[in-house]
Design a protein around this nucleic acid. Structure first.
Length: 223
DNA sequence: GCGACAG
DNA sequence: ATCTTGTCGC
């Protein structure tokens, strides 16, 4: 399985890229039959020394926004941060966190890119292949791609384009705040992904489940 | 060769 | 991501 490839991964730059290209071809970019009642936000914090980390997943009921479940998991981080290879660093912490939840989320929103990635396999997409569930990539900054200037009003957005591909949407979810980068993770369309994010960003810049997960992950190693 | 570069 | 205080604006 994919999880073995990841766990026993003898870190090699070229092998990692081959694996990503392989997995990227399995990503489904269209909507799947989907009845969303439980939405999960996923985030990871890294310790000062950079050798340990804490993953957090917070699951909320929709549309009540009540917290249905949450889970945190701490462990060693063996791979350094390398732009484009984030999933190899964080998924080993995220997977166990999700396995410890007492509910099964219908939709995952991950703090990072989906297909808005050089090889179309950001961490949200990679996670989608693990869970088999619909996932959305919601990043706070750009990894690749270009876009027109985005208006200053809430809801204003522009397509994120890389080469000949539309890889995501850049959107202003809060007045005068930085943009966020939305992309397909897996088993969902870009339009649907953006709609969900907008519905979950009523009060803050980031989708509520992701914001909650970010707070739950806290600042690891600082306490 | 040089710059860019999720978290 | 993390290191860090106060401060300006919605």
């Amino acid at each position: 399985m994919i999880i073995d490839q990841l766990h026993d991964f003898n870190f090699s730059f070229s092998e990692a890229i081959k694996l990503q290209n392989n997995l990227a071809s399995k990503i489904i970019r269209e909507d799947q039959p989907l009845d969303v009642k439980l939405i999960a936000g996923v985030d990871v914090s890294i310790g000062r020394q950079g050798s340990t980390g804490r993953a957090a997943v917070v699951v909320m009921h929709y549309p009540s926004f009540e917290i249905a479940a949450s889970s945190v998991y701490e462990g060693e981080v063996n791979i350094p941060y390398i732009p484009g290879l984030l999933s190899f660093r964080e998924l080993p912490l995220i997977i166990p966190t999700i396995e410890r939840l007492n509910v099964v989320p219908d939709l995952f929103i991950v703090d990072g890119q989906g297909i808005a990635h050089p090889r179309r396999l950001g961490i949200a997409s990679h996670l989608g292949l693990f869970t088999g569930k619909p996932t959305i990539g919601c990043a706070k900054s750009r990894l690749c791609g270009e876009h027109a200037e985005v208006g200053m009003h809430v809801g204003d957005s522009e397509f994120l384009v890389h080469g000949d591909d539309v890889i995501g949407k850049v959107v202003r979810t809060k007045k005068g705040c930085k943009l966020i980068y939305i992309s397909i993770g897996h088993r969902i369309s870009l339009e649907t992904a953006l709609n969900w994010v907008l519905k979950l960003c009523k009060t803050h810049r980031l989708p509520e489940p992701v914001r909650q997960a970010h707070m739950a992950a806290g600042r690891y190693g600082t306490q």
